[in-house]
Amino acid sequence: MPNKDTLAWTSMISVLALHGFGNEAFDIFRQMETTGVKPNHVTFVGLLSACAHSGLVEKGRWCFHVMKRVYLIESQLYHYASMVDMLSRARLICL
């Protein structure tokens, strides 16, 4: 795809997240930023899901912060649910 829009980038991030490739999802996110395409609220659901499926708690916290502070995207129920999922999985690993 020569010209990717937000939907295309978000789809790639979400598929990587679903399969537990969290670091790769963030690589795609960085490419997205580099090309000047702005993420939306769904992009951040994908990133938070990637963190939950990959055990990337610190990246998840960073992502939640960036979403609000840099991109001015207000947290919705599904963002909070992703954070709870991520933190609960991390808690289970510690047990």
Rank of each mutant, 00 (worst) to 15 (best):
K4W: 13
S11P: 05
N3V: 04
S82I: 00
H19R: 09
G36W: 09
V45G: 07
M12P: 00
W62C: 04
V42W: 02
A90V: 09
I73Q: 00
T34A: 15
H53W: 05
M12D: 06
Y78D: 12
H65S: 15
G60I: 12
H53K: 14
S49N: 13
F29K: 06
H79Y: 13
V42P: 01
V45P: 00
A50K: 12
T6P: 03
S11K: 11
H53T: 09
Y80K: 13
T34M: 14
A81Y: 10
E74F: 04
W62R: 07
V45K: 02
P2V: 14
V42F: 08
K4R: 15
P39L: 08
E58R: 10
F21P: 04
V45D: 00
L48T: 04
I73L: 12
M83V: 13
A17K: 01
H53N: 15
N40Y: 06
L92N: 06
S75D: 08
G36Q: 09
F64I: 07
G22Y: 07
L77R: 08
H65L: 15
A8E: 07
C94K: 10
S75Q: 08
L18M: 03
S75I: 02
E74H: 08
Q76W: 09
C51R: 01
W9D: 12
H79T: 09
G22Q: 07
L7Y: 03
A50I: 06
N23D: 13
C51V: 00
F29T: 08
A90T: 01
S75K: 05
H79S: 11
S88P: 03
I13V: 04
P39I: 13
H41K: 15
R30L: 08
N3R: 15
S11C: 12
T35L: 14
D5I: 02
R91M: 10
M32G: 05
A25D: 03
L7Q: 03
D85W: 01
E24T: 12
G60D: 06
S75Y: 00
A25W: 03
A8C: 14
V42H: 00
E24P: 02
A25H: 02
K68D: 14
I13E: 04
V42M: 06
N3D: 10
V45F: 09
V15G: 01
L18E: 13
N40W: 05
H19D: 09
R91I: 11
G20M: 00
F44V: 09
H41S: 15
D5K: 11
